[in-house]
Structure formats: structure tokens, C-alpha cells
């Protein structure tokens, strides 16, 4: 999986959005086939087995849920991520019940899609427990441990979540809003710049104390980036 590009099928009727997602996903090392209709999507699934299908629910010629039904009835092993503008509990429940692996509501941040896709892919290859590695930094999702040069780094729950998000999106500028949305969800409006700043300061202090290089850089007024540079 690491060496080979992930084969993705993207089904999204909004051309501008489809193009955007396609280019973003390709930039992150995936091979993307894009279709703009349910029928087009279904035809693609007959031609080729994809690692993951990202499908919009509201398509002009039918519901994306129909595609999930077809894929599941044919016992295809492709993972499925739903993207929908409809933020309804019912759609979410139906989608996940049908066997979708994740459900993203528009609008979502691209790093969030990347994180979700990675996590779905890790599950697909039974690698969900495989450690995430960034240079000297190793994060073990199975145990929730983080190590620097084999020395454990003690993080709080929130610090761990933050680091996890950074490690799934290395070398990307993650703005404060995206981070707050990812880590605090519904309460992101309460998560003032202050609180994120405090957490980031604490993580970086722990990095320094553990003798770890300054991987996380501040982009003043914007956000943070996990990078070697």
C-alpha cells in the first residue's frame, strides 16, 4: 500500500468540486478516476476494483446510496466514503448501515478528507494499528503511545489527537480553523485561538524536553505545519 498509489473512484456531479478533489487527492499520491453521475460511477465499478470509492449522495441521476447497495451486493471489497451536502442523521445512518466506511458532510476541509481517507485505507489493509512515523516521531494508534527515538512522550488526550491529525497531514499548513474543527468538532466555536495555542505550546515544549527536533512550526495568524524543514 505504501509504495503503490491508492486507486480511487470519485463520483461527484459538481464539476468544480470534483476537479478540486481530484487534484488534491492526486497531489497526495492517489490515483483518481472521476465520474460525474451515478451511472458513470456504477459502470466504473464494473470495469475495475478500486481501493476506495468516494461518492456524493445527491447525484443528478440517483442517490449515491444506490451505488453503495450495488457495490455491496456484488461483494466488492472497495472501501466507501460518502460525501454529502445533506447533514441528516438518517442519511448518515442509512449510509453507514449499508456498509459505507465514513461519512463526510460538505463543506469539509481537504486535510480532513485526507485524514479520513488514510484512516479508511489503514483499516482496509488491517494496518489501523500500524504506527505512524514522521522522522524520529512514532505514533502507535493501537496503544495511543507516542515515542521519540524510542523514548515515550506523554501527551494528554487532546495533544494526542492534535498530533495524530498533524501526522496524517504532514508537510501541510493546517490552519487554526481546520484544526479546531477536527479536534473540537461541534464546539470549535468555543475553542478560541488561545486554547489551541496553549495545546500547541505544550506539545512543542514536550518535544523539546524529549530532545525531539522542532517539527511543528507556527505560521503566525494562520496555523501550524508539521515539517522537517
Amino acid at each position: 500500500m505504501e509504495n503503490q498509489a491508492t486507486q480511487l473512484l470519485l463520483i461527484e456531479d459538481e464539476k468544480a468540486f470534483a476537479v478540486l478533489l481530484e487534484s488534491y487527492l492526486q497531489q497526495h499520491g492517489n490515483h483518481v478516476t472521476t465520474r460525474y453521475s451515478l451511472q458513470g460511477g456504477i459502470e466504473q465499478t464494473l470495469l475495475k476494483e478500486f481501493d476506495c470509492i468516494i461518492v456524493d449522495i445527491g447525484l443528478p441521476d440517483g442517490s449515491g446510496l444506490e451505488l453503495i447497495r450495488r457495490v455491496k451486493s456484488r461483494r466488492l471489497t472497495s472501501s466507501l466514503i460518502i460525501i454529502s451536502a445533506r447533514n441528516t442523521l438518517e442519511d448518515k445512518i442509512i449510509g453507514l448501515d449499508l456498509g459505507a466506511d465514513d461519512y463526510l458532510i460538505k463543506p469539509f476541509d481537504l486535510p480532513e478528507l485526507n485524514a479520513r481517507l488514510k484512516s479508511v485505507m489503514r483499516r482496509r489493509y488491517a494496518q489501523q494499528d500500524a504506527p505512524l512515523i514522521f522522522d524520529k516521531l512514532v505514533l502507535y494508534p493501537a496503544t495511543g503511545q507516542v515515542k521519540v527515538d524510542q523514548r515515550p512522550l506523554l501527551l494528554t488526550q487532546k495533544e494526542y489527537e492534535l498530533l495524530f491529525f498533524f501526522m496524517t497531514n504532514p508537510d501541510q499548513l493546517l490552519d487554526k480553523l481546520t484544526i479546531a474543527k477536527q479536534v473540537w468538532g461541534y464546539n470549535m466555536d468555543l475553542a478560541s485561538n488561545d486554547i489551541l495555542y496553549t495545546h500547541m505550546r505544550n506539545i512543542r515544549k514536550k518535544f523539546v524536553d524529549a530532545g525531539c527536533p522542532e517539527y511543528i512550526h507556527t505560521r503566525y495568524g494562520l496555523g501550524y505545519i508539521l515539517t522537517m524543514a
Binding site: 468540486f17 478540486l20 488534491y24 451536502a85 458532510i105 463543506p107 481537504l110
Partner: peptide, 20 residues
């Protein structure tokens, strides 16, 4: 409300790309 989400997603996504 639903229709507004897709153009927002496009705009936000493009801004995300610009940020990088």
C-alpha cells in the same frame, strides 16, 4: 440550506489548496 453547502465546499476547498 443544502444547496448552499456545495458552493461553500468548493470555495473552502479552493482556499484550502491556496493555503498550501
Amino acid at each position: 440550506s443544502h444547496e448552499i453547502q456545495t458552493p461553500l465546499a468548493i470555495a473552502l476547498g479552493n482556499l484550502d489548496t491556496l493555503m498550501q
